[in-house]
Amino acid sequence: MIPSADTILQLIVQALLLGSIYVLMAVGLNVIYGVVKAINWAHGAFVMLGAYAAYWLYELYGISPYASAVFSAIALAAIGAFTHELLMKPFFGMRYFRAITLVVTYGLAILLINITRYMWTDVLRGVNLGVPPATIGAISISRPFLYGGLVAIALSILFYLMLKRTQIGRAARAVSESRKHAMLVGINPNVMSRFMVISGAAMAGVTGSLISTIFAVTPEMGSVLGIKAITIVILGGLGSYAGALIGGLMIGFAEASGTYFLGARYQPLLYFLTLLIVLSIKPTGIAGEE
């Protein structure tokens, strides 16, 4: 089937929007990895909690998920602080640090998903704003997706600029390169890593608010997305923002075009193969350092 120009355009837009949600998740993971060197397996669960926060605020008080993203961010920031103090800090300097934090955050994910399930059951929920799609020429774009994508891109750029341009960013990079040397120039690495874990978790909260209007809100909603985000971070290179951007968009495109041209059955294949090919050529991801 040869698609028309409009269909291709529609596909590209869709891929871009989906990709930007992935980018936001990947950036959230990278913010943590950059300084702490831990992959947060619970990121998907954090996103899920953010979505629940948005859902309840919408359901009970009628607050739009875009406005309540701030509350989601604050709530998740608190959980992030807890995660850093209790589940990451005690392991600093251990031989299997990365492996241990991965297993611990996996435990955290199980814990959070099942507490959610216990409190609010598996009932499907969702926020339907009922807004009609935006139409540009022959293509129509889902507004929740459009807003979500735009906020995701803005937030990613904002964070990138903060890390590149501000004093905090410089300090974070210093810690990321060497905790010891950072300490010598008067930076407290613990403060930095706490700040970054909190920021990463807050970003997960915002992501959750954004996707509460796109996907069904369930305790398991973050699991697939979380693993996808980890794949993207690996594809782009751990700790690299440019990598997260390229990786997220690549996966967005691989999924949309794979589904359209190869069929839904092969949808996951294309993006898995992308990752495997990239890694067998460059074992540290697109933009990762050795």
Partner: peptide, 15 residues
Amino acid sequence: VYLIILGASLILVMR
């Protein structure tokens, strides 16, 4: 609640 306990015990054991 066994999954809640499982998650918690995983964290505690590793901790």
